[in-house]
Simulated scan of single mutants.
Amino acid sequence: MISVRVGTALAAAGLGVMTLSGCSGDIRQQASDLVEQVVESGTEKITNAVSGDVFTPEGIDAAYAAISDKVGANPMQVVEVKIAPGVLVVEAIDPSAPTSLNEWSFLAGTVRNPVPIDYAGDTEALQQNLFASNEVPATTIAAAIDGAVAASGIPDGAVKTVTVKRNLPVDQAIGILIDVEGAGAGKQVRSDAAGQVTEVV
């Protein structure tokens, strides 16, 4: 039964080519996120059970290792990492073609085929947004997740999505953005690359 429902989740989360635009270091995703589609479809508990808990250091490292093996680089050079229960998505360049950017998804315990990202050929913006996947260790991401609900101040809140990326166009620093929801409220807890909370909005 789980395999059928996971298949449904995968089908519901199917995407076409991702379109990104780059301008002065600002690369923005224009299409729907696989992570958000899985969360909104209500299948995150199923994918989490199959994939393992990707909110833990062990789960993040396992997903990274599986994707890195497919990408052919460890550490990977990435533009963004997104995590939801049971789902981890990275936007990583192809080491054999450094101007080729692809989305790789770890879902239901497997790595899906890459989805090419069109960033309008703005290689300057691509280079400005890139960082190595090990610049923010899995232990730091997991610790930030663990403290996010308390930092949000939302009673009975739960972490829905986590995003790791540079803070462009504000600055070049890498940040961890954690969306917490609960009791009809939502907050984003923002941390630096060391996992220290910098802002709650």
Score class of each variant (00 low, 15 high):
residue 108 A to P: 06
residue 59 G to Y: 02
residue 133 S to N: 03
residue 81 V to T: 11
residue 135 E to T: 13
residue 60 I to G: 00
residue 86 G to V: 10
residue 89 V to E: 14
residue 86 G to N: 06
residue 41 S to W: 04
residue 39 V to S: 02
residue 127 Q to R: 14
residue 156 D to A: 14
residue 35 V to H: 09
residue 72 G to S: 06
residue 114 P to C: 08
residue 28 R to F: 14
residue 94 D to K: 05
residue 198 T to F: 00
residue 16 G to A: 07
residue 100 S to A: 14
residue 9 A to G: 03
residue 7 G to A: 09
residue 135 E to P: 04
residue 117 I to A: 14
residue 133 S to V: 06
residue 22 G to P: 03
residue 111 V to H: 03
residue 94 D to H: 05
residue 61 D to Q: 14
residue 200 V to Q: 00
residue 193 A to W: 04
residue 200 V to S: 01
residue 157 G to S: 01
residue 28 R to L: 13
residue 166 R to M: 06
residue 27 I to G: 07
residue 28 R to E: 14
residue 199 E to F: 00
residue 163 T to K: 15
residue 167 N to D: 04
residue 188 Q to E: 13
residue 199 E to C: 00
residue 176 I to L: 01
residue 82 K to A: 11
residue 128 Q to C: 03
residue 78 V to A: 02
residue 23 C to S: 13
residue 132 A to G: 15
residue 56 T to N: 08
residue 169 P to L: 04
residue 5 R to M: 14
residue 77 Q to D: 10
residue 179 D to G: 02
residue 98 P to V: 12
residue 116 P to V: 02
residue 170 V to H: 02
residue 95 P to R: 09
residue 2 I to Q: 12
residue 47 T to K: 02
residue 28 R to Y: 10
residue 186 G to P: 11
residue 18 M to A: 14
residue 60 I to Y: 01
residue 194 A to H: 11
residue 45 K to N: 12
residue 93 I to W: 07
residue 1 M to L: 11
residue 172 Q to D: 15
residue 84 A to F: 02
residue 56 T to I: 07
residue 156 D to G: 05
residue 77 Q to C: 01
residue 178 I to K: 03
residue 105 S to C: 07
residue 97 A to V: 04
residue 49 A to K: 09
residue 91 E to D: 15
residue 4 V to A: 13
residue 105 S to F: 05
residue 199 E to Q: 06
residue 143 A to G: 09
residue 141 I to A: 02
residue 87 V to Y: 05
residue 93 I to N: 08
residue 171 D to H: 03
residue 138 A to K: 07
residue 124 E to T: 13
residue 79 V to M: 05
residue 98 P to D: 05
residue 140 T to W: 05
residue 66 A to W: 04
residue 47 T to E: 13
residue 24 S to T: 10
residue 36 E to W: 05
residue 97 A to Q: 10
residue 111 V to E: 02
residue 48 N to V: 01
residue 39 V to L: 11
residue 137 P to Q: 01
residue 186 G to Q: 15
residue 167 N to G: 06
residue 117 I to R: 12
residue 65 A to S: 15
residue 67 I to R: 07
residue 111 V to N: 01
residue 11 A to Y: 11
residue 53 D to I: 03
residue 65 A to R: 10
residue 84 A to Q: 04
residue 137 P to C: 04
residue 141 I to N: 01
residue 75 P to Q: 00
residue 148 A to S: 10
residue 14 G to A: 15
residue 15 L to N: 08
residue 96 S to V: 12
residue 194 A to G: 12
residue 88 L to H: 02
residue 196 Q to S: 14
residue 32 S to W: 13
residue 12 A to W: 15
residue 17 V to H: 14
residue 46 I to D: 15
residue 118 D to M: 04
residue 149 V to W: 07
residue 152 S to C: 02
residue 149 V to F: 04
residue 165 K to L: 08
residue 68 S to C: 07
residue 156 D to W: 11
residue 5 R to T: 13
residue 58 E to T: 06
residue 186 G to N: 12
